[in-house]
Design a protein around this nucleic acid. Sequence first.
DNA 1: CCAAACTGGTTTCATTTGTAACCATCGAAA
DNA 2: TTTCGATGGTTACAAATGAAACCAGTTTGG
Lengths: 161, 161
Amino acid sequence: MEPDILELESFLPYRLYRLADAVSREFSRIYRDRHGLTRPEWRTLSGLGQRGTMTATELGEQSAMHKTKVSRAVAELERRRWLTRTPDENDRRVEHLALTKAGLAAYREMVPLAIAFERELLGRLGAEERAAIVSGVTALEAKLTPEQGIGPRRASPVDQS
Amino acid sequence: MEPDILELESFLPYRLYRLADAVSREFSRIYRDRHGLTRPEWRTLSGLGQRGTMTATELGEQSAMHKTKVSRAVAELERRRWLTRTPDENDRRVEHLALTKAGLAAYREMVPLAIAFERELLGRLGAEERAAIVSGVTALEAKLTPEQGIGPRRASPVDQS
DNA sequence: CCAAACTGGTTTCATTTGTAACCATCGAAA
DNA sequence: TTTCGATGGTTACAAATGAAACCAGTTTGG
């Protein structure tokens, strides 16, 4: 009953990874070609654009990045003068990050491109397929506990690419 | 109508990537803890175990790896004496790769673990959710052209089940 | 009040990765 | 044949990544 070979092409972890990698690679052109951003930098920009102000830790939680990635991405965006740090009043370890005008401009420029990308991607599918991928991903996300790398988490850092 | 912010948590490329990364990271424990394999090494082992004999190029196509990754993975597995290279009779650029007894043993040991992992993962879902993720992934795979990093270059559409 | 444990964030170092250049061989065309 | 462009595969080098050590500031328990 147990097969003694594994069909890689049908193996969900592999398929999922390959799919995500292909999609992400394709999408990355939008921020890489345009501004030479890395994925962590894009996520940082996107997170701050979305929420306005966040600390590095919050950024890491929201966008599933390891703190070192956040740190480096923030440093780079600061170097570009796309964001500024404001020390917290009460806790001097914490810095509140926010986009500058230039950062916000870049963000605003990219949002429609990102949305168009997603729309185009989903547009290749039929309505049922679209529903399937979305609900399937949602279901699986829900089953992955924080310890397994997804979902909000308080203690103990997660690592993601 | 066009929102001027992007909700990262709902953005499919991000969700897909995060999900795949979490799953893959979890799964990687199986081959990493057990034998200290990297992902490219695991894929190489898996590909050869599945098909018996392949060239480096074929390996790269089957398991969606860049040729440098294949090259390095093959070199490492050869160093472990888990695979051997046999020069092609007609084309001296080509080498046919195959697992040794030791390589095959490691492969055979890991296949049930991989299958159990997948089963457990899908087992967390209900039947409908399971169907949704599988058919959703299948649908999206089918829409990604080879140039975008997925899909058979020659024929034989991506597998289901 | 003070030491220990903890937390936000950065840095160091080794490993992994991607890009491009490279070597050898092959195949087609002149 | 000779030449030239493709192809299989490896290597060199730079950039990205992860783990762990680290620094500074904060909290907690005695």
